[in-house]
């Protein structure tokens, strides 16, 4: 299992996975390892059952993402999309302390479409864990940049355009 807070400081989330209740639940669901990417926060998780390791930042989380069967992530767009691209099971945890919280919008939209589970704040993580592991997932569609390139050409008018705009 991978927990990531990106480049932000989100100690509430790191603390939430550093509890006996969380480790118990995770062990019961069959997890063995816990990797925590702490970001700018200061709290360091302890060994409470799961084999736990943590670090602050890495240039790329590719390896950790590929080996994780569940990702618990802060609600930053970068982290969410990276995890969904890797087709990981994902629990998005919103940080309600962030100013005018529009992180919530993205997390809700992704959850509504069945791409991931969501916790409205760090205290809900334990309660949402089972749902995140067992929910029916709708795969996140692959990016298709063709319409974007067409739009650019249309906006600039570099080539004759036959299709109607839109």
């Amino acid at each position: 299992m991978l927990v990531t807070v990106g480049t932000t400081c989100f100690d509430e989330l790191v603390r939430a996975v550093d509890t006996e209740a969380f480790h118990e639940k995770a062990l019961a669901l069959g997890f063995e390892r816990l990797v925590v990417q702490r970001g700018r926060g200061s709290h360091r998780p302890r060994q409470l059952g799961l084999k736990t390791e943590s670090f602050d930042l890495k240039p790329s989380l590719d390896e950790e993402l590929k080996s994780a069967s569940l990702v618990i992530s802060h609600a930053g767009a970068g982290s969410i999309i990276e995890a969904l691209r890797e087709r990981r099971r994902l629990l998005v945890v919103v940080n309600p302390l962030l100013m005018n919280n529009h992180q919530l919008e993205l997390a809700e939209a992704m959850q509504k479409r069945g791409h991931c589970a969501m916790a409205a704040d760090a205290s809900e993580v334990v309660a949402r864990l089972q749902e995140a592991v067992q929910m029916d997932l709708t795969a996140y569609p692959a990016a298709n940049l063709k319409p974007w390139h067409d739009l650019l050409e249309d906006a600039c008018g570099v080539v004759p355009v036959s299709r109607a705009p839109g």
């Binding site: 939209a109 298709n144 319409p147 739009l151 906006a155």
Partner: peptide, 25 residues
């Protein structure tokens, strides 16, 4: 703007100029 692109159909419905082009990211 000449073209205004959004990533969610909800926004394109609300703003007539906004264009939703499917998943780009």
């Amino acid at each position: 703007s000449d073209s205004f692109v959004v990533h969610w159909p909800e926004l394109a419905e609300r703003y007539p100029k906004a264009q939703y082009l499917g998943v780009l990211l």
